[in-house]
């Protein structure tokens, strides 16, 4: 009994230490943003939004890119996930293997082909260069496929008795089962695109005006950097807190 209690305390202490370690940079940034030239207040935010007024242009760039990438990525991944999980066709597993392979490749490995394609399509240094490559997410297809595999085939068969429309089948039999997974995936994709740096620096190196906030953050004046960081973090933290339950439930619901 004593041993059990000791291990529980040890576990709690370890987890608390990690929680503090993870929360510390966020709390420190938020705390520092409330001081400007040694004085407590919101002056740093005023300086950020007024003296450095173009900061918000980059903020909106990030919002637009992340929202577009998330929406299109989900729209593309849903039918592909359904295709790979529920529709039987020749070479299905082979094609899916290629998908997984692409997912395993690091960003640097696909960088050059992406760059050449964007250059050939005259898309370099345009907002499309920062969004289109990220809209095709093998990870999203993989995750949705795994979730859709857990949907009983009988359910789809019953729905097919009612309607012959694939869209209706998808809407009434598949989508309600994976709604939470889609929300979770949307949050993950949004966070990933919100934090993009490498692709923005490389695909848009001659057009600084279209950069996302993640790239510009290091260039804002040092005296307002904590406020800039706090504003940058807020949407992600807000999303996490608002959809934390959905995220947890979708992870728990997934049984391979």
């Amino acid at each position: 009994m004593k041993k059990l209690r000791f291990s529980a305390i040890l576990r709690l202490l370890t987890l608390s230490a990690f929680a503090v370690l993870f929360a510390l940079p966020v709390a420190a940034t938020a705390g520092k943003s409330l001081f400007f030239e040694g004085k407590f207040g919101l002056r740093q935010y005023w300086e950020l939004f007024v003296t450095n007024f173009t900061y918000l242009n980059y903020f909106w760039n990030s919002v637009i890119y992340s929202a577009a990438i998330t929406a299109v990525s989900i729209a593309i991944s849903l039918p592909l996930g359904f295709l790979f999980s529920k529709v039987k066709f020749r070479f299905r597993d082979g094609i899916f293997f290629v998908f997984i392979l692409v997912m395993m490749l690091p960003f640097q490995a696909t960088l050059l082909p992406n760059y050449i394609q964007l250059r050939d399509f005259n898309m370099l240094n345009t907002p499309l260069a920062l969004t289109v490559p990220m809209m095709f997410s093998p990870f999203a297809v993989f995750l949705l496929r795994q979730f859709m595999k857990t949907i009983p085939n009988d359910l789809i068969d019953y729905t097919l008795l009612e309607t012959s429309s694939v869209l209706k089948t998808f809407r009434y039999a598949v989508f309600p089962q994976i709604k939470q997974a889609v929300v979770s995936l949307a949050i993950l994709i949004f966070c990933e695109s919100w934090n993009m740096v490498d692709q923005a620096l490389i695909f848009s190196m001659d057009n600084g005006g279209i950069m996302p906030l993640s790239v510009i953050l290091g260039e804002i004046p040092e005296n307002v950097r904590p406020a800039g960081g706090a504003v940058y973090m807020f949407p992600i933290i807000m999303l996490f807190v608002m959809f934390r339950e959905t995220l947890e439930e979708s992870m728990e619901a997934y049984k391979p």
Binding site: F49, V50, T51, F53, L56, F59, W60, V231
Partner: peptide, 12 residues
């Protein structure tokens, strides 16, 4: 964010 997007520069 919306307020300062529209009025940040004007305030400056």
């Amino acid at each position: 964010i919306v307020f300062f997007t529209f009025f940040g520069e004007k305030l400056f």
